[in-house]
Design a protein around this nucleic acid. Sequence first.
DNA 1: ACCTGAACACCGTTCAAGT
DNA 2: ACCTGAACACCGTTCAAGT
Lengths: 240, 240
Amino acid sequence: MAAKRSGARGKRSERISESLQPTQEPRSEPPLSLERIVATAVELLDAQGVDGLTMRRLAERLGSSPMSLYWHVDNKEEVFDLALDSVLEYPGPPQIAESRDWRGAVVHMLEDWRASMLRHPWSASLLPRRALGPNILSRLELLSKTLSKAGVADADLNVAIWSLWNYVMGATITRGSVDLSDDDRVAAQQRLTRLSERYPTIERSRLLLDNDWDGTFRKGLDFLLDGLARDNEHSSIPGR
Amino acid sequence: MAAKRSGARGKRSERISESLQPTQEPRSEPPLSLERIVATAVELLDAQGVDGLTMRRLAERLGSSPMSLYWHVDNKEEVFDLALDSVLEYPGPPQIAESRDWRGAVVHMLEDWRASMLRHPWSASLLPRRALGPNILSRLELLSKTLSKAGVADADLNVAIWSLWNYVMGATITRGSVDLSDDDRVAAQQRLTRLSERYPTIERSRLLLDNDWDGTFRKGLDFLLDGLARDNEHSSIPGR
DNA sequence: ACCTGAACACCGTTCAAGT
DNA sequence: ACCTGAACACCGTTCAAGT
């Protein structure tokens, strides 16, 4: 159902030779399949971004006619859905150690979540518009289970899950939209400096230049988990 | 620079009469201007969503040729940028009471932020791909100033701001993507129930049916603020 | 200074047809 | 069961031209 990670293999050099001799090498492509379509869509998205994914370009990359895709897939929307979910496959659920360190486990899960999306920057901008696929649901399930075992009361569970989810999504999306190239960022900060009467505080704190995203993510997550843990102490089983 | 809130006025009936007598009533349109373009773009986005905004349709609504727009605007991207920022205008900065209740002030700002975006659902899905406009920067500035006055040390300021921003963005975007129509949500939960061996925990907590988004947003925000306040107690001035 | 029509190089998708 | 080409109704944007 979900595409495996075959997408990354030798993309760079392939693209060069492609652009030099555009429509050559029919090299007996393997037959079309949903897996190949999704994997190639991810490749294309990685290379060209959201606007770069075109049914026609996708077909070309697959060595088939654009119309062939429509036998395997209802429409372009479905390609987006499948590509997004395929990128969010989670390798880790049936872990060995049911470590009693729930907080460490949660942090690990969420950092992996974020890392998966950052590996494919288009995924963050796509997610707001797409449905929740099976891999996303699996991650939510695992997160739920971990929190539940940690003693979070059922009544608080959904709030906890959505809070963490919101934070991860927001952090990932923000990084994609704020983390411009170095040049852009410097230009943005300079523009801010020019307008420093209007934005004195964020100019002074160099908000747009602060690019320790990983550290910031981790610290903010700790704040949130502090709040969660504290609430948990008050209202239910105090630990294990 | 930013469009005022003229967008909402009588849109519904306007659309009906439009679709009945498509290309009539030249009614001496006012001349094109950036303001009118942006306001009409917001109208169109509200009515038809992100994919509904087309340079050609926008021009039609404005009673002009598609090409006229390009005198006022570089390209479609710029229309998106301007429409997004115009929707995030913040009315409240020079408040009367410099209330010493920093936490209440922060909550109010963030709830308004979220509400502004929810009023225009396309804004959440647009933001990940767009630059930060002046109105967004104003909101960040005000948030910074409030936290700074509340005693957050300069070194912690950026982490605090990004944490809150991330949370608001994530919550807003999530609501847009998860909060389907009632029918869809029930269908999703049923699908989950059918697969309850695979997702037992989130099926049991009815994660996808829990639609008290406002309450959940507020509670999660409180967790985050608890964490921030606690950290603040430890590291710097303890209050005021 | 402001607006326009014709034209170009693209899109997603339907349909009727091929094997 | 799987794939295809021609065609339709759109796109954003360039360009040369109008007032």
